[in-house]
Amino acid sequence: MKKILTEINGIPIYRNFVEDLPYNPQLKPLLSGKRKAGILSEVVFWKQVRAKSFHQLDFDRQRIIGNYIVDFYVKTLGLIIEIDGWSHNNKEIYDEVRQQYLESLGLTIFRITDFDVKNNIAVVMKDLENFIIENYKYL
């Protein structure tokens, strides 16, 4: 039986922890630089979810999974949140290969745009709630 992790709008959300994710320690030196870069959309989103402030879910920022660094990761759900900005322009093939790899590990990816985070954060958070309900509701 799956364990209920939290509730969103009265709907039970089940835990979906993905074990034994690959980790490339050679990427670790890049983490502090990415965090210090202070990309505005990531900072805005982080303020919405840090310290379990979003439905008691624990978000990691800049998490290494395999040979990739994901923007945000909720380990108890196996959920990656990616904020797509200008750096993703003309990288469709790279992003597709990356997404296929991460999904092959049993992870789920929620994509949002840099523009929406900066300009429509309330809508982004509502969309994230709906995405979590749709993908993790307790059946």
Rank of each mutant, 00 (worst) to 15 (best):
V97L: 14
V49C: 09
E19S: 10
E7P: 00
D58C: 04
K91G: 02
I121M: 10
L128Q: 09
I109V: 08
E82Q: 14
T108A: 06
N24R: 13
Q48M: 14
P22L: 03
V124G: 05
T113H: 03
S104K: 09
L107I: 01
I93D: 14
E96M: 14
E129I: 08
P22Y: 07
N119E: 05
L77P: 03
I64P: 06
I93R: 13
I112A: 02
P22C: 08
L139I: 12
S53Q: 15
Q99N: 15
F72A: 03
I83P: 07
I65A: 04
D95A: 08
I80F: 05
E19V: 06
N89H: 10
L128N: 10
D20R: 14
Y23S: 00
L77A: 08
V74E: 11
D95F: 11
W46A: 14
D127C: 13
D95L: 09
K28E: 15
L107C: 00
G10V: 10
I133A: 07
K52S: 07
Y138S: 13
E134L: 14
Q100T: 09
E42V: 10
N135D: 06
D114V: 04
Q56Y: 04
Q100V: 12
L102M: 03
W46K: 14
N9P: 00
N130E: 15
I81P: 10
N130G: 11
I133T: 11
N119I: 01
N130W: 01
W46M: 12
E82T: 08
S53A: 07
V117K: 04
V124D: 08
S53E: 09
L79M: 07
P25S: 05
G78D: 10
Y136T: 03
K137M: 12
I93Y: 12
P29H: 03
W86M: 12
K52C: 01
R50F: 01
V117H: 05
Y23Q: 05
E103H: 06
V43F: 02
Y23A: 03
K3M: 14
R61A: 04
I81N: 10
K91Q: 12
N9T: 01
R111W: 03
L102E: 02
F110T: 06
I8G: 06
Y14A: 08
K34L: 15
L21E: 06
K126I: 00
V124Q: 03
K118R: 13
P22D: 04
I13Y: 11
E7D: 10
R98A: 05
D114C: 02
K3G: 00
T6D: 07
T76Q: 14
L27P: 01
F17N: 03
I8F: 07
V44Y: 13
I64G: 07
K36T: 07
